[in-house]
């Protein structure tokens, strides 16, 4: 009985996939729209699905796990071909993921991982936040090339895992460069206004900014606030003080294109691309992807085509 059912089911799944890789239906349970990046992730996912001819069923959970669980059960009931889940919390997923597994629906985690046995999901597509810090640190190391450099750091919200990881990655990367020293580090709460205010005090405390060689900000918004503070202090951001940050929001691409900032590490909103690619392979011939697909942490510098990146991103909802 069971064998027959799963045979029929896999036949139903495989048939159209081998035919045209189209008409697949994927359910996407998104956390919500708490940040610009999250909004961009949603629009990129929708665009990606459209391009690949996949029907996307979208559910906004408004920051609530019970909404996500409800949405997943709904997807299972509708018999979708796969589920994308951007989990709002790490725990409490075993049961509903088990239900999806019993229904033979592959689940792909996006952007965050969960505390559940890894046979309950197909794969997880996330970025490596420690690695993002490393990319930023490596860039600075290369740019300064042994010259002494005093760095000020704008941290994210105190205690957030992203803050801890991006701080660690950067510190690891510059550990073997004795010429680079972090002289001040304060939280800017990931916000533009706090970034500006804290940068102002850094500038005052370090001889009007003359003793600062570079700024590392845990996100672009704080860096954008800091750029204004540097300008108001009569210095040239990007020249007098080098700036590297993480996220690659459109406004930062614009700033780099105008020479006011130096580098940004992309936290790509395109988690869905790798996820769909993995799913298509799985639908086609059952290829199992690795349990963790790490997205690329692309580095954008003044040599990159920032205007193109800006044009691409400006309407994604950042």
């Amino acid at each position: 009985m069971n064998i027959l059912k799963s045979l029929l089911l896999s036949a139903a799944v495989l048939m159209p996939a081998s035919a045209f890789a189209a008409n697949e239906t994927v359910g996407f349970s998104q956390i919500g729209s708490e940040s610009g990046w999250r909004a961009a992730e949603t629009s990129v996912t929708k665009a990606d699905a459209k391009e690949r001819g996949i029907t996307l069923k979208f559910a906004d959970a408004q920051q609530k796990q019970e909404n996500q669980i409800k949405a997943i059960r709904g997807f299972i009931a509708q018999g979708v071909d796969a589920i994308l889940l951007a989990p709002v919390v790490a725990t409490g997923w075993d049961e509903v993921l088990g239900e999806a597994k019993d229904a033979d629906i592959p689940v792909v985690l996006m952007d965050r991982k969960v505390d559940a046995p890894d046979d309950l999901y197909l794969t997880a597509v996330t970025s490596d936040t420690v690695h993002e810090g490393e990319v930023a640190g490596d860039w600075l190391k290369k740019a300064e090339d042994g010259k002494p450099c005093n760095v000020v750091e704008l941290q994210g919200t105190t205690g957030a895992s992203v803050t801890i990881d991006r701080k660690k990655g950067f510190a690891d990367a510059i550990a073997d460069a004795p010429n680079i020293k972090i002289i001040r580090s304060q939280t800017g709460d990931f916000t533009r206004s706090q970034g500006k205010i804290v940068m102002e005090s850094f500038l005052k405390a370090e001889n009007g900014g003359k003793d600062i060689c570079a700024l590392y900000a845990h996100n672009d918004d704080m860096a954008l606030g800091a750029i204004q503070a540097i300008k108001e202090a009569g210095l040239k951001p990007g020249e007098d003080i080098k700036i590297v940050s993480v996220d690659s929001v459109p406004d930062m691409h614009l700033a780099i294109a105008h020479g006011q900032s130096n580098a940004t590490v992309e936290l790509t909103p395109d988690m869905a691309g790798p996820a769909f690619t993995a799913l298509e392979a799985y639908w086609k011939d059952g290829t199992m992807p690795p349990k963790w697909i790490q997205t690329k942490s692309t580095l954008y510098t003044q040599d990159s085509d920032n205007m193109a990146a800006y044009e691409r991103k400006k309407d994604l909802g950042y």
Partner: peptide, 14 residues
């Protein structure tokens, strides 16, 4: 004042 300061309206944090 805070909006003019950062040249943008940050509804989440202002």
């Amino acid at each position: 004042v805070v909006t003019g300061d950062i040249r943008g309206a940050d509804a989440n944090n202002a």
